[in-house]
Nucleic acid binder design. Structure first.
Lengths: 239, 239
DNA sequence: AAGTGGTCTAGACCACCGT
DNA sequence: CGGTGGTCTAGACCACTTT
């Protein structure tokens, strides 16, 4: 049963068959796949091989795993145009998805090293660090760290930080997100993001860093976001 | 030697140790890692476990595999600002990398279904399809399909297509890339791209689709690019 | 308690790479 | 040709979820 020359390896055949069942609608968004041991029986092979197929479908974004509960068909991606000034909640609603943001932690802390340079701060300067988790239709899709400047938004922690930061900035401080510098690339989940999102450490992720400016051209804050690699699509329109 | 409760699994420890050797410079960009069997001996474990660690470092982009030749430390990422109108060759040179583009195939063909809508064409319309491979410092990083409109660039195939399309457009047709609509997201390598890039089918990739407009606001062409997921970083500046 | 995925062992054969 | 990674077998125990 080894893969003979000129033929596809077994795990690619299994992958193709599962993929077909997703594309033809036999398996729908959110559906659970058969258990790994059932798949072994169906395809007459071992778990190592089945899991190779599943891992591959996972990297394509077609399926995902929920720790120890099984494999599921991935819902459609959210999409984001970084040149539009929108926020997560509006984004979701426009795309017919139900948004939720949960504040995991909000504190004053000394600026982390990798954030110091973008924010043009000195060592030991203090910042607000908000750690938040974003959901679309109840599924955690994004682990988010906001690094905010006390000079811009004093007493930030007094407000309800479970909603839109954009609105708090505007309502309470008269600050408007106006432009930004955005960097992103595929990488893997660091431990903290992995734990919060309920995915396994080291799984693929989309890392997104955002330096925001206000309407006066001053630096406002710096975000680090880890998105599930299967949950976001970026669209940019240049004019 | 099973991972006891409260401890990290073995493959994460191995991953961390290899990562440390890369970050502290013991392993440099382009270096080959010890063979899988050597790593088994070093860490006193089996290939399945070692390969789990390697696969994880691969998804983070820290290392890559060259088919049957071993594992290597990944060179720095190229970066791209899609709102700038640049091209691959200029991009590389500005970043101190040596660019190369190889034409794999150039032909007239009927428009593929997934390209018909963006290009606003009808079924059975003809297009030029260029298949090209892009290298940075001799390493294949991008598999690229250009779908060009004969109405805009008649006799396109007569030109030397191993260089910059931008220049051919401008020099021979007076057409200038002016704006674009860009979509991208992480996914996995389809068979054709995988073969051309010398990576394994199903490995992670960054898919980039680009609809280009000329200086008159007319649709110019449509590109589909599969980048190695470890070779590109996107930077966007909004003003 | 039964079943799931997560981790791991200890082998095997193959195709392909470099020498 | 010897060594490499690519693929695969046939098991095992664990932590955790679900029933």
């Amino acid at each position: 049963m080894k893969s003979p020359a000129g033929e596809l390896p077994q795990y690619l055949l299994i992958k193709a068959q599962l993929q077909a069942r997703i594309q033809n609608g036999a398996l729908k968004s959110g559906d659970k796949l058969p258990s790994e041991r059932e798949l072994c029986a169906i395809f007459n092979t071992t778990r190592v091989t089945v899991r190779e197929s599943l891992a591959m479908l996972e990297s394509s974004g077609a399926i995902y795993r929920a720790d120890r509960r099984g494999w599921f068909v991935t819902p459609a991606r959210l999409w984001l145009d970084p040149t539009q000034n929108t926020n997560f909640h509006r984004l979701c609603l426009e795309q017919g998805r139900e948004p939720k943001t949960a504040l995991l932690d909000g504190r004053v802390t000394t600026v982390p090293l990798d954030v110091m340079a973008p924010l043009a701060l000195q060592p030991f300067d203090q910042i607000y660090l908000l750690t938040r988790l974003r959901y679309a239709d109840g599924r955690a899709v994004c682990y988010c760290e906001n690094h905010c400047l006390p000079a811009r938004v004093p007493e930030l922690l007094r407000h309800d930080l479970n909603g839109s930061l954009t609105e708090i900035y505007q309502t309470h401080y008269g600050l408007i997100y106006t432009s930004m510098h955005l960097t992103f690339y595929p990488t893997s989940m660091p431990p903290q993001a992995a734990e919060a999102l309920g995915v396994m450490e080291g799984r693929p992720a989309l890392l997104l860093r955002r330096l925001n400016y206000d309407q006066h051209g001053r630096i406002l804050d710096f975000d680090i976001e880890y998105w599930r690699h299967d949950s976001l699509r970026i669209e940019v329109d240049t004019h």
